[in-house]
Nucleic acid binder design. Structure first.
Length: 965
RNA sequence: GCGGGGAUAGCCAAGCCAGGUCAAAGGCGCAGGCUUCAGGAGCCUGUCCCGUAGGGGUUCGCGGGUUCAAAUCCCGCUCCCCGCACCA
């Protein structure tokens, strides 16, 4: 199998053109054929397709091509996702001259200058990438029906009509609700700041604080806390003397809070009117009242109080909050600070921590104990945070409230916390506000706050009934790999309501509230249904305004009759019927594949929305989940500079090489790793494959059938079966591995064993082989298929069928036997470091075979022991005559026979007594070549044998005795 | 923290669900040989350790256990990766 220069590009172009001319992958309903509808989640067009897209989509295409060859009417459509913020964002950044982005687009995406300048129009940008990506998809050879291509957003008005229908229907079904929701918000951009839009604060989300409204003069000091239960242990207040505070009317009450808190609250549905501004020191030394028992407590200076955090008002519980204790201790140690504020030292000295939670393993004052344990020095010690977290966790999970807590006494903190908050709020002792636990800075450099968005539209994924249906859909579907099923169930339970509309970005406006746009993950859930009718929309030039609700109701839900709907829409009734029929023909989706990162969002939404909108028989049939691609072991990213676009990779290596390399990289949920080294190796293999098939196609020679010929065909059957089963289960790596390497190794062994290969057999094998590989390397296989003299496309050829009649267990056992003999012989040669002149083999005597088979039979019923075995064997006259040797023979074999796996035992029994002498003599020439010496074969009981060391009697079935000179 | 996936010989990676054919597929790399008008091609052999006869020893993250028998089952531990929401 020598290599030849092959022009991949020429082959690929040739067949791509022919496929297109033949409209090979355009699939239309055919009631006489079973259908298969596979989909790949449409990619987002803010950049070129990368090799990670290529990986997942290749798996889809392998499956599609496989099913097509198995006779299924197979549809693999493709579309483009334009919905969302990033395209607009990128476009804006280009407009503003963002150097990093522009360089990335030039260098990685290879966008020419004259195109780049037009990217200030986001739609132009999306169109550009769509055009580029379409080319890449064609080049890599995905078997797509392009008549059904579309993109999303209002720029594809008929798609928008579809989305409108979807959301009106969902709303009527009660799955869309209205509500409020806290988001991280940039006051400058006036929009939510997602994780990827931040300079600082990745992974930071709003947290809800309880505000305890301590009474102060004619108003309140609302102190923020996560631990409202500790109010029973409050001893004082801390205010930052240098921070700016305000007196403000908040929903009609007078509140004293930090200046920034006032602003934040105004974004959280509170009516805020600032009355006056002042420094915190004004409050220091004054007294406030706690609202439970009305105790009067002092306000002390605390510079650790961050006015940017929550209200900037902090109450102090030194028994249970390490920070509070440390702050108090500081003040006790530094009376001069107190005097600066005119506070007598005894005010602080007399403060006693009040214990309100009992915790196993701690005494009265857990905070103080932990501070001592960790040796926290002062308020600025980083260990303080750890101390706080230890106390908090311990008290939350195991703490029990003490009698001082009144009606909550005796309960654990965990159980009663929510109740306390509710009670306090009802009693107007508490309120709440959201804030960010850490600084978050928007890309525009503005510090973010939490805003509560009103009138937000939600998909009610929290609905238990909806969840139940989603679970049922997961149970009913095939999930590849099976282990991902639990992942889906888990994520369905975990999903909360999803804000399904946004104010900015591209998309489709909500039909009943057009200032909102359907959010990107929410407009991409059932669009596979649109593939089934977009063909008609194009062909019959159906206008968006014709696509009234009733049209979709009719097509997708079977509501109404076509005459009526025709009147409403102006679409002829026969076309409506055709669309309905086409939808019903293709639906449900037979397979959808994506990377595992989409399980918690896209794939789960896909399931949810299908169960909401469609009857059970139209729910997805199978979902495949795969890993996330890395490049040479590294996560792919544009900033790291290891971003590989699909187009570049296909340009460099050719479509088939890329496809096969990707297929061989991983399956199930393992992460594939793209390695150039692997691609080069695959390239070499394919060149050799070409050379081999080329050679076989013109080969002539004798065509007698020997055992080795039957062996090759027999092996091929098990390869066919294994590849078929693997692809059925989307185990594309296993399938590719067997189809390429295992078959290759079989053929190699065959060529080695057969001095003059049988051309007919090889051509038969080649015809199967090329078809097994066709889903993986379709271009090359088309070429090889025609090289082998076949008419038509291999893409449409019948998938090889497992042929029982070609299975030859005996031939397989014979090869096992020969291979074993070779291995044993090599082993001896290596150990003795001899260079053999003559090798003598002695095959087992007839009685050994007889006993061996008998033992196999006995052990397939149940485990045999020595005594029982001998008793049965001795019933045979011939065996009895060699009783002494028999006993030795059986004792050596019995363990082995007993532990043989059932399958193997069956194979051995099926093969029966093989003609060791004949087979070995037939292989003698081959063995001579292998060992470059003479080979002589005897039967162990041949009276004329040459056996100077008495080796012959060691012979066992399948393991002849060996003597080497 | 919650959830999911992992840990196998130099590397990648099968096997584990259904315990014995497992010193453990396949690929890559490496070494030796062959082939070739010596291009990153092909073929053969080797690649845990020991062994002058086909054998033996020790391995499948760590520690226990079940079993005649465990990479595979059970318990505990350590470490790695990924997701965690208004975002594609």
């Amino acid at each position: 199998m020598a290599q030849q220069p092959i022009d991949w590009k020429a082959i690929e172009e040739k067949w791509r053109r022919r496929w297109e001319e033949a409209r090979l992958f355009e699939a239309d309903p055919d009631p006489n054929r079973k259908k298969c509808f596979v989909t790949f989640p449409y990619p987002y067009m803010n950049g070129p397709l990368h090799i990670g897209h290529g990986f997942t989509a290749t798996r889809v295409d392998i499956y599609a091509r496989f099913m097509r060859m198995r006779g299924y009417n197979t549809l693999f459509p493709w579309a483009w996702h334009w919905t969302g913020e990033p395209i607009v964002g990128a476009s804006l950044r280009i407009k503003m001259g963002d150097k990093d982005l522009i360089r990335a687009l030039k260098e990685i995406d290879k966008v020419p200058d004259e195109e780049l300048e037009k990217f200030i129009d986001p739609v132009y940008m999306a169109r550009y990438y769509t055009r580029e990506s379409r080319e890449a998809v064609k080049r890599i050879g995905f078997s797509v029906d392009w008549r059904r291509e579309f993109h999303t957003t209002i720029y594809e008005p008929t798609y928008s009509r579809f989305i409108e229908w979807q959301y009106m229907t969902l709303r009527d079904l009660g799955y869309v609700t209205r509500g409020t929701h806290p988001v991280v918000w940039c006051p400058s951009c006036q929009s939510p700041t997602g994780d990827h839009d931040r300079l600082e604060g990745e992974g930071v989300f709003p947290e809800e604080y309880t505000l305890i409204k301590f009474i102060f003069e004619d108003g309140y000091l609302p102190a923020a806390t996560f631990r409202p239960e500790t109010i029973f242990g409050v001893t004082n207040m801390f205010i930052n003397p240098d921070a700016t505070y305000v007196e403000a009317l908040v929903d009609g009450e007078k509140w004293i809070i930090s200046k920034s808190a006032a602003f934040k609250l105004s974004e959280q549905l509170k009516k805020v009117r600032v009355l006056r501004e002042f420094k915190g020191r004004e409050l220091i030394g004054k007294y406030f009242k706690e609202p439970i028992n009305g105790r009067e407590l002092p306000i002390l200076p605390g510079w650790f109080v961050d006015p940017e955090s929550a209200t900037g008002v902090v109450y102090s519980v030194p028994a249970h909050a390490p920070a509070d204790w440390i702050a108090l201790k500081d003040l006790m140690d530094k009376p001069e600070i107190l005097s600066e504020f005119g506070i007598p030292p005894e005010v602080v000295r007399e403060i006693k921590p009040i214990s309100l939670i009992s915790v196993e393993g701690f005494g009265e004052y857990p905070a103080i104990e932990v501070i001592e344990q960790l040796n926290v020095k002062d308020q600025f010690d980083p260990k303080l945070e750890e101390a706080t977290s230890i106390v908090y966790r311990k008290e939350f999970h195991t703490g029990v409230l003490k009698p001082i807590c009144g009606k909550y006494a005796g309960k654990t903190v965990r159980d009663v916390k929510a109740q306390i908050i509710e009670d306090f709020k009802r009693a107007n002792i508490a309120d709440s506000m959201y804030d960010l636990p850490q600084r978050v800075v928007c890309r525009c450099t503005t510090r973010c706050i939490v805003k509560i968005l009103e009138d937000q539209w939600f998909l009610k994924y929290s609905d238990p009934e909806w969840k139940r249906l989603a679970h049922e859909a997961v149970d009913a579907a095939k999930i590849f790999p099976e282990s991902a099923r639990v992942y889906f169930h888990d994520k369905i339970d975990w999903l909360r309501d999803w804000a399904c509309a946004r104010k900015t970005g591209l998309g489709t406006p909500l039909p009943w509230s057009p200032d909102w746009i359907v959010e990107t993950l929410s407009d991409s859930t059932i669009y596979m249904a649109f593939y089934t009718i977009v063909k008609h929309i194009r062909r019959y030039d159906i206008k968006p305004e014709q696509l009234v609700r009733e049209v979709f109701d009719y097509i997708f839900l079977g509501k109404g009759d076509h005459d009526n709907v025709s009147r409403l829409s102006g679409i002829p009734p026969n076309i409506l019927r055709e669309m309905r029929e086409e939808f019903l023909y293709w639906y449900p989706v037979d397979l959808r594949v994506s990377a595992k990162e989409l399980v918690p969002n896209h794939l789960s939404f896909f399931i949810f929305q299908h169960v909401a909108l469609f009857p059970r028989e139209l729910w997805p049939r199978a979902i495949g989940v795969n890993g996330v691609l890395t490049i040479e072991g590294q996560k792919m990213s544009k900033s790291k500079g290891n971003f590989l676009t699909l187009r570049d990779v296909v340009d460099r290596f050719g479509a088939d090489v890329v496809r096969l390399t990707l297929a061989l990289a991983a399956e199930e949920m393992d992460d594939p790793d793209w390695r150039e080294e692997n691609a080069r190796s695959v390239d070499a293999r394919l060149r050799s494959l070409y050379a081999f098939i080329n050679q076989v196609s013109g080969m002539s020679g004798e065509d007698s059938i020997k055992s080795i010929d039957r062996w090759l065909l027999s092996m091929l059957q098990s390869r066919i079966r294994a590849v078929t089963e693997a692809i059925e289960n989307l185990k594309t790596r296993t399938a590719a591995e067997i189809a390429l390497y295992e078959v290759w190794n079989d053929i190699r062994w065959y060529l080695r064993r057969r001095e003059s290969p049988n051309p007919k057999i090889l051509r038969e094998v080649a015809n199967v082989w090329v078809r097994l590989l066709a889903p993986f390397t379709p271009f090359l296989c088309e070429e090889l298929w025609s090289m082998l003299g076949n008419e038509g496309f291999v893409s449409m050829a019948e998938w090889p069928k497992y042929d029982e009649s070609k299975v030859d267990v005996r031939a397989e056992e014979v090869e096992e036997f020969i291979r074993g003999v070779i291995d044993d012989t090599w082993s001896i040669i290596r150990v003795t470091r001899a260079s053999p002149k003559t090798i003598y083999y002695y095959v087992s005597a007839g009685w050994k075979w007889k006993a061996f088979i008998k033992l196999l039979e006995m052990s397939s019923v149940k485990k045999v022991d020595m005594r029982e075995a001998m008793r049965t064997l001795m019933e045979d006259n011939e065996l009895r005559s060699v009783a002494k040797d028999l006993a030795q023979f059986v004792s050596r074999l019995i363990e082995e026979v007993n532990t043989l796996p059932a399958e193997r035992r069956r194979a051995l029994l099926k093969a029966g007594i093989i003609d060791e002498l004949g087979d070995l003599r037939e292989a003698a020439d081959f063995l001579k070549k292998e060992f470059s010496c003479e080979v002589i074969v005897y039967r162990e009981d041949d009276p004329d044998r040459y056996d100077p060391r008495g080796k012959a009697r060691q012979a066992r079935p399948y393991r002849p005795a060996i003597y080497i000179e």
